[in-house]
Write a protein that binds this DNA or RNA. Structure first.
Lengths: 205, 205
DNA sequence: AGAATTTAATGCGAAGTGGTACAAAATATG
DNA sequence: CATATTTTGTACCACTTCGCATTAAATTCT
C-alpha cells in the first residue's frame, strides 16, 4: 500500500517531515502571522509545491493541528497506563506536557492547539472544530482512566469521573497558557503537582 | 485636571470609546489578523488619527489589553467581597467571566488575553509581559481572599492558599479556552461549579 | 485679526500577502 | 523511444498591509 509507484515525477520531500517543520513555524508565530514565505523557507519547499501537496494555508495548518492532536493522544494513552496508580498517571501526563511546552527558542511555546488555534477558532469554523474535538477527546481519555480508578477503589465511589477529568484537563490548559506567558518551569511543575494532589486528594494509594 | 484646554484643534472622538471598539476587533480576529483598515472602520477613525493617538498597531493592542486587564481586576475585586463566603465569591467570579466569555457574534469570544495575547506572547515581549502580569495579578487577588478564608476558619489550616488560588485560576483559563472552542454554556457552568466544589471542598460553610 | 498648534482627511508608496500560470524536469507506461 | 503524468522552479499577479507625507480644518494664544 506504500509502494504503489505513482506515474509522474516523484516527490523530493517527505510529507511528514515537512508537516513537522511547518508546525514549528505555526507554533512560534501563530496561523495568521505565519506567511507562506516563512513556511516555504522552513520546509525548503517553494510555494507551489506546498500548495500542491497540502492545499492552501488553512489546509496546511489544519493538517499540522491534526498531526499534533494525534501525537498528543498517543502520548496520553501511554501516560495513562492503567497498571500504574492514577496519581502516577496524571504526573506523567503533566510531565510529558511540560517537556513539550517548555521547548522554545525565544520563549516557551506552550501547546500548539491552545496557543495558536484558540485565536483562530472564533472566525474559522474548521479550526474551532479541531480544537473542540481535541479538547473533548482529551477529556474523554482521562475520564476513562478515572472511571477505572473509581471501579478499582482507587478513588471514592462518590467521585464524578467526568468532572474530575475536566478539571484535570483544566490544569493542562492552564499550564499551556502559563508556559506561553513566560512562567518558570518551577512554577509550572508546582501547579502540576497541586493538580495531581487535588484530583487524587481522596485516593488511598 | 480634565478641562486643561489644549491649544490646537480638539479631538473629535473619545479615546476610551475608541479603545473599546478597537478591542472588539482584536477580540474577534486576534492581533495579527486585525488590520488597521478593520480598526479604522470600527473606530470611525482614519489610520493617521489612530496612529497619532495611540501609536502603531502593537501600541494600540497593548492599550486595549491593559484596559481589559484593569476592568477584569476591578470586577474581580467586587466579586471577591470578603463579607460573602468564599464559595459564593468563586461562583461570582466564574459567573462574571462566563457572561463576558460567551458574548460573541459568530462564536463565543472567550477571554481577550487568553484568547488573543497567548499567540503573540512568544514573539512579542511586551505582550508576554502584560499577559504574565495579568495572570499573576489575578492569582494574587484570589490568593489574598483564600488566605483570609484560612484565617477565618472557612478553609482548613492545611490549605495552601497560593496553590489553591492558582488552581482556581486554572479553571478560569480552561473556561476561557473552552468558550472559544465552542463548548456550550451548560458545560462551562458545570465546570465552574465543580471548580468551586473542588477548591472549597474542605470548607465548612 | 493673525500666529501658533493640534487634529483630520486624502492619498501615496514600498513592501509583503496568498495564490497561480507556465515551462522545465523526472518518472511510469505503452 | 514516445507519450502521459506528476512534481519542481521561476516569475508573476492582483491585492492588502502598515506607515507616513502633505494639506486642510479647528481651536487657543498674543
Amino acid at each position: 500500500m506504500k509502494d504503489e509507484k505513482k506515474r509522474g515525477r516523484p516527490r523530493a520531500f517527505d510529507a511528514k517531515a515537512t508537516l513537522a517543520k511547518a508546525r514549528d513555524v505555526f507554533w512560534d508565530r501563530g496561523f495568521a502571522a505565519a506567511s507562506l514565505d516563512n513556511l516555504s523557507a522552513a520546509t525548503n519547499l517553494n510555494r507551489p509545491s506546498l500548495y500542491g501537496a497540502f492545499g492552501d494555508k488553512e489546509d496546511l495548518y489544519l493538517d499540522t493541528l491534526e498531526g499534533y492532536r494525534q501525537d498528543g493522544m498517543d502520548a496520553l494513552a501511554l501516560a495513562l497506563d492503567p497498571s500504574l496508580p492514577l496519581r502516577d498517571n496524571l504526573a506523567r501526563v503533566y510531565e510529558g506536557a511540560l517537556a513539550v511546552y517548555l521547548h522554545g527558542e525565544t520563549a516557551a511555546r506552550g501547546c500548539l492547539l491552545i496557543g495558536t488555534a484558540t485565536v483562530e477558532a472564533v472566525e474559522r469554523e474548521r479550526v474551532r472544530e479541531v480544537l473542540g474535538r481535541s479538547l473533548s477527546d482529551f477529556d474523554g481519555e482521562i475520564e476513562k482512566r478515572i472511571r477505572l480508578a473509581v471501579e478499582s477503589g482507587e478513588l471514592s465511589e462518590s467521585a464524578d469521573p467526568q468532572m474530575l477529568a475536566r478539571l484535570a484537563s483544566a490544569v493542562m490548559h492552564s499550564l499551556a497558557v502559563r508556559a506561553r506567558a513566560g512562567d518558570s518551569r518551577e512554577t509550572l511543575e508546582a501547579i502540576a503537582r497541586s493538580g495531581v494532589e487535588l484530583i487524587c486528594g481522596s485516593a488511598r494509594s
